[in-house]
C-alpha cells in the first residue's frame, strides 16, 4: 500500500525527518510512537502532501506510484485519508455542506454515518467552531467514514476524548480499518500516532515504530513497545542505538 524510501524532510533550513524507510502492506495497521516534537505529525503531513515542508530526498510510493510531488487532493482521490489532531476551524462552512461535497451529494451515506457517530445535530454547524475535543474527533472520523479512504492516517485519535466517547471513536476507527473483516480479506491499512495507547484496545495493530529526533529508533510489536515506554518512558528510546 505505502512505501517510503530514504525520506528526508526539511522545514526551512532545519532537517526534521531523515533516513525514513517504511513499508505498510494492504490490511496492516501500524502504530507510530515517540516523544513530543519527534517528527510523527510531520511524517503524516509529508505523506499526505502538505505544504511548508521540503522533501529534500527520498520517495513516497502509494500503490506503487510515486506520489512524492503529487498535490494533496490527488493523494486523497487515490485513497489516502487523514484524521487531524488539531484540525482548523472554518467559520461559515457547515460540516454537512462539506460532507455533501465529499460524498457526491449522497445524503443517505452522510446520514447513516452521522447517526452512527451521534453527529446529526452538528451537520448544520460550522466545522469545528465551538466543538469540544471529543466532538472534533467525532467530526474527523465522520469525514473519513464518508470519504472512505483505503489508507488512513490517524494523528492521536484519542487525545481530548472522554472515556464515553473513546469507545464510540475506537469502534468507528476499527470499522474504518475493516477490523471486522477477516484478516485474509482486509484491504484497508492504517498508520496511527498514539501517546497513550488507549486506541489500541480497539485496533489490533500489527507493527509498532518509535520515532525520536526525526528518525526511527525501533520497530516491533506495538504492545511490547508500548509496555517499555509506559515503564521507562522515552529515555531508553533516546539512549537506544539507531537500528
Amino acid at each position: 500500500m505505502l512505501d517510503i524510501e530514504d525520506l528526508h524532510v526539511m522545514i526551512g533550513d532545519r532537517v526534521v525527518l531523515h533516513d525514513i524507510n517504511l513499508h505498510i502492506g494492504e490490511g496492516e495497521t501500524h502504530v507510530l510512537m515517540g516523544p513530543n516534537g519527534s517528527g510523527k505529525t510531520t511524517l503524516l503531513r509529508a505523506i499526505m502532501g502538505f505544504g511548508g515542508l521540503d522533501i529534500a530526498k527520498g520517495k513516497i510510493l502509494f500503490r506503487g506510484r510515486d506520489v512524492t510531488r503529487l498535490p494533496i487532493h490527488e493523494r486523497a482521490k487515490m485513497g489516502m485519508g487523514m484524521l487531524f489532531q488539531r484540525p482548523p476551524t472554518i467559520a461559515g462552512l457547515k460540516l454537512g455542506k462539506l460532507l455533501a461535497v465529499t460524498s457526491g451529494e449522497d445524503t443517505a451515506v452522510v446520514n447513516e454515518y452521522a447517526k452512527y457517530l451521534n453527529m446529526h445535530s452538528f451537520l448544520d454547524r460550522a466545522i469545528n467552531l465551538g466543538f469540544s475535543g471529543g466532538e472534533i474527533k467525532r467530526s474527523e472520523v465522520l469525514q473519513l467514514m464518508v470519504q472512505g479512504p483505503d489508507f488512513v492516517m490517524l494523528d492521536e485519535p484519542e487525545s481530548g476524548v472522554d472515556l464515553e466517547n473513546i469507545t464510540l471513536i475506537g469502534n468507528a476507527i476499527a470499522k474504518l480499518l475493516e477490523k471486522d473483516v477477516h484478516i485474509v480479506n482486509r484491504k484497508k491499512s492504517g498508520l496511527v500516532i498514539t501517546h497513550t495507547g488507549y486506541i489500541l484496545d480497539y485496533l489490533d495493530a500489527d507493527f509498532g515504530h518509535v520515532m525520536c529526533d526525526g528518525e526511527f529508533r525501533c520497530h516491533g510489536n506495538p504492545r511490547e513497545i508500548l509496555k517499555v515506554i509506559k515503564t521507562s518512558g522515552y529515555k531508553e528510546c533516546l539512549a537506544c542505538q539507531k537500528i
Binding site: F50, P71, I72, F84, P88, A91, L93, K97, T102
Partner: peptide
C-alpha cells in the same frame, strides 16, 4: 489544505471556503 485532504481540488476548496465565509 484541510479540504484538499478530503479530496477537493484547490479551486473547489477555495470556493467552498469563500462560500462559507459569505454564508450568513
Amino acid at each position: 489544505e484541510y479540504l484538499m485532504s478530503r479530496g477537493l481540488d484547490e479551486e473547489v476548496a477555495t470556493a467552498t471556503i469563500i462560500r462559507g465565509f459569505l454564508d450568513v
